[in-house]
Write a protein that binds this DNA or RNA. Structure first.
Lengths: 197, 197
DNA sequence: TGTAAATCTGACAGTCTGTCAGTAATCTTT
DNA sequence: AAAGATTACTGACAGACTGTCAGATTTACA
């Protein structure tokens, strides 16, 4: 699933025909892939720089060529996650026309992304509480989503589709509920099967 | 607010007329109090055994007389919190008569407890992701609450007071939302003022 | 006050982190 | 395809924190 070595690999992002990326870019990606592999089966608290780099064949200090520490690496994972989640939420946020099917599309897309990336999402959330900067990024990510949902709710209230509740508190409450449930359900394997656990 | 020293203090739990507790009990309580003080203003990630014990005048190794590590100490704080929260939730869980005022009483009590203990609640939640055992305790605490709420919902459904939704998923969803919002709002000082932040 | 039990301490070994000067690999230019 | 310049890597180090232990100190109680 991921490169066995950090040395001289192409990195599985390089598609045929692309220019071969700089070595540094390849190695960076290989480290990120190794982290994804690790976090797929083990919690963030068990991740150490040493073990991570031993998954390739590079030395521990090489890690610091690419990331300032493990939390900085998690920031990179969060950025990817944010892009993916924001992309899948676009239909409802910006789509034109009847909002009901758009919302359904967005919600099922959101669940699908969290299903696929659950352990990573969870790892980022876990890591956030151990580092001030990552925590700020995480809160900022949540806030971005809150803002978008609140704006959308207000828009639909103006159209008479949603009762006149305070939009932002409503958005925050629903988002926190969703986030908690998605991380709970898909954050660790074996994955949850509904909330009955 | 807390003892300045761990040595020879009574510990502020000892009320007049009680038998003076054993030294070990007093010291243990003093350490817990120091931890509460610390966590009131600083996040769990900054807490170290050395700094904690330096708040009294005891040496670092003395800590291990009372707790196996910092997460074990957090377990103790969680137990106190659990007792307090469960006590305040009793009116709705077990009260007789019209459930509406009972629920209001419980909810406002819950908010009050979280207002008073917010930073501690948050510290426990943060610490939980860094330690397997504490994480299990935390999930167990949530589950206990989920079970109680689900049972109460079913009971009110039987009385025709709540629509026939799946009780447990409903309970879990509402509890996760509440927990996330309460920790968000009251978990750090200065305290939040509604969700508008 | 004396003494057994309890509590505490300095010193140690272990794990992980982050840095640095020097070495090795890679890329570029000719 | 070899030299030179740049980029990437490494072993070795110092620092922070943890958890333990034998021995010293304090406490409790007769």
């Amino acid at each position: 699933m991921s490169a066995k070595t950090f040395r001289g690999n192409l990195g599985h992002r390089a598609a045929a025909g692309e220019v071969r990326p700089r070595k540094s870019e390849r190695t960076r990606q290989a480290i990120l892939d190794a982290a994804l592999d690790f976090l797929w089966t083990r919690p963030f608290r068990d991740l150490t720089v040493g073990e991570l780099m031993a998954m390739g064949d590079a030395s521990r200090p090489a890690f610091y060529q690419y990331f300032s520490d493990l939390h900085n690496l998690m920031e990179a994972l969060l950025n990817d996650l944010r892009d993916e989640i924001m992309a899948v939420a676009q239909p409802w946020f910006e789509g034109e026309g009847d909002p009901v099917p758009l919302l359904q599309e967005t919600m099922s897309g959101l669940v699908r992304v969290c299903y696929r990336r659950g352990p990573i999402l969870r790892a980022v959330a876990d890591a956030a509480s151990a580092d001030a900067r990552l925590e700020k990024d995480w809160r900022n990510f949540l806030k971005t989503f809150d803002d978008a949902v609140a704006a959308k709710i207000e828009q639909e209230q103006a159209a008479g589709l949603v009762p006149p509740l305070a939009a932002r508190p409503l958005a925050v409450a629903l988002n926190r509920m969703d986030a908690a449930l998605l991380i709970d359900q898909f954050g660790q394997r074996p994955r949850g099967n509904c909330v009955s656990r």
